[in-house]
């Protein structure tokens, strides 16, 4: 990065660190923080959407749809979420390839599962084996996002389902008394009032989502954990111009601080949001605000 970095062995300590922190590999490490933030930015709304669909389905009057919604909500109970992460990444991958295989190679006769192998025709591979490296990474990342969304969608469905039931029933009865249809009651009365009941659960979920992001590493994405392990490991002069001892403990201390700060900032922001949403609501919090004003 800097012009004086050409010979690391003669540098003073601050200059050495200035060079060390601006190497190309470290830049990839910084960029991986962006990967984590990108994952959060995509997963949070998509998971909320999944959760909303799940909660709405669980409330449906059509019994099979309601069972489906309740099954989705119950999915994450009793089983560690990491199992779902590991399961869905392979299952989704195989599912997509299987569907493409059925569409693209209809005259293929061999079985797809041969012993321990999963064989689809070349045209059905995802991404195609001829695709450039970037598409492989994008595909891996998208699978991770989809997996996170499914699992956290189930948590969100749980929260939203509870929030929908927390809306006072008299409100819905009044709406029906005014002649609103079931659909109108749902969209115009239930949904707008639901959010304030859902927010404590959803903020908890956001914290959980932040703390689940290191699991990206398990899904094969080159995230901050991957780079911290790579870069912190003992380097010898053969592989790098910047030899140092095993610094993984310092790298992970950095990650620890990053997550603590992120959690703290989120806590403060969510507390502000909660204050704004409770304003004027007929709840204990809203009443306390009214008295204080």
């Amino acid at each position: 990065m800097f012009s004086f970095c050409t010979d690391p062995s003669v540098l003073s300590t601050p200059a050495w660190f200035a060079c060390y922190f601006t190497t190309g590999k470290l830049m990839l490490f910084y960029a991986s923080f962006g990967t984590v933030l990108l994952l959060l930015a995509i997963t949070a709304p998509v998971a909320l959407g999944f959760g909303f669909a799940g909660a709405a389905a669980a409330r449906a009057r059509f019994a099979p749809l309601s069972w489906l919604g309740k099954l989705y909500i119950a999915m994450v109970r009793g089983v560690p979420d990491i199992v779902f992460f590991l399961f869905f990444v392979i299952a989704l991958d195989q599912g997509f390839e299987y569907l493409r295989h059925k569409v693209k190679c209809p005259d293929w006769t061999d079985p797809i599962r041969q012993g321990s192998d999963f064989i689809v025709c070349d045209a059905a591979k995802l991404p195609l084996s001829t695709a450039p490296q970037i598409w492989h990474e994008v595909y891996g990342f998208s699978l991770a996002v989809l997996t996170f969304s499914i699992v956290f969608g189930a948590f969100a469905a749980n929260v939203l389902y509870g929030a929908m039931r927390a809306v006072p029933h008299a409100q819905l009865e009044t709406a029906e008394a005014y002649g609103m249809t079931h659909r109108q009651t749902f969209w115009r009365v239930l949904i707008p009032q639901m959010w304030v009941y859902a927010l404590p659960g959803l903020s908890n979920l956001w914290m959980v989502l932040i703390k689940a992001t290191p699991l990206l590493f398990l899904l094969g994405v080159e995230d901050i954990v991957y780079w911290a392990r790579e870069l912190g490991g003992a380097k010898t002069a053969r592989f790098s111009d910047y030899p140092h001892a095993d610094w993984r403990v310092w790298y992970f201390l950095g990650l620890l601080v990053f997550y603590l700060l992120f959690t703290r900032v989120s806590e403060i922001a969510l507390a502000k949001l909660m204050t704004r949403l409770t304003h004027g609501q007929a709840t204990v919090g809203g009443e306390a605000q009214r008295k204080a004003a």
């Binding site: 689940a212 954990v225 993984r248 403990v249 703290r264």
Partner: peptide, 18 residues
């Protein structure tokens, strides 16, 4: 409570190694 358990495991392991 503010940091992921996953990172805590990693940090503790490398701390104990050093």
């Amino acid at each position: 409570r503010g940091s992921p358990l996953f990172i805590q495991f990693f940090f503790a392991y490398f701390l104990f190694l050093s």
